[in-house]
Amino acid sequence: MTGPSASTSTAFEKAKADGRAALIGYLPAGFPDVDGAIDGLKAMVVAGCDVIEIGLPYSDPVMDGPTIQAAAQQALDGGVRTRDVLRTVEAVAATGVPTVVMTYWNPIERYGVERFAADLANAGGAGLITPDITPDYADAWIAAADAHDLDRVFLVAPSSTDERIAMTTAASRGFVYATGVMGVTGGRRATAEVVGPLIARTKATTDLPVGVGVGVSTGEQAAELAEYADGVIVGSAFVRALLDNAGDRSAGLRALSALTEELAAGVRRA
């Protein structure tokens, strides 16, 4: 029990007051193992992440490219369970940084939507990012999030119609996740050409902050996209920092810190 959860919106407000975009960093729980992920995420907090996104490893991750697939598979092979994800949330949220879980839907449905919302709130988690469920099919989650004061981060995509964007932002809480490319994580590079119009269409429907993720990996890109977005979300690049240093935990942590610092400088350069 870590007390009331911090909404992600407070982190966006703080960044905005500083005249910059927020930095959101991702690792899957249980990668390279449960304690290793906790150590990695804490290092990312210390080095400058404003919000932490913890992946719940799943056997069939259709929005993820090979890098995050490999990390999630390693976590599952290592025996990570949903309760380990909650333990990871508790450890990271204790740092005071808003902490959300990124999860495909079936593990939540299996755990019980209401039960998961209650346990996530108890662990100090701020909410969920849900890549494979949209508000028009999420009645149970919307109700559970309301009951437990949790953020509901739904996604908008370059292919979304204006009607669907309006429907999505109306159901969102905390922030809105704009996918920077048509594609999976760790693949194509997000560019201002695609992201700019999507963020403009999204902001036309809501006062919520908009974070851009998928296809963002470097400080330079973070700087470019921070001109349009309220937050920059990075996942595969952090996972790669650990994969590239497999077998050397302290080198992995140094790589995570260095990447965080590069990205944190990027969101301040815009």
């Binding site: 099919y137 009645d139 370059p158 292919s159 979304s160 119609t161 669907r164 996918t179």
Partner: peptide, 24 residues
Amino acid sequence: DKGWFGGPLEGFGGKYMPEALMKA
């Protein structure tokens, strides 16, 4: 018309997909 066999509460089906594919 939302793809539910037996309704959203007790039934089966639906459309659990990334937003990127919903328009298609």
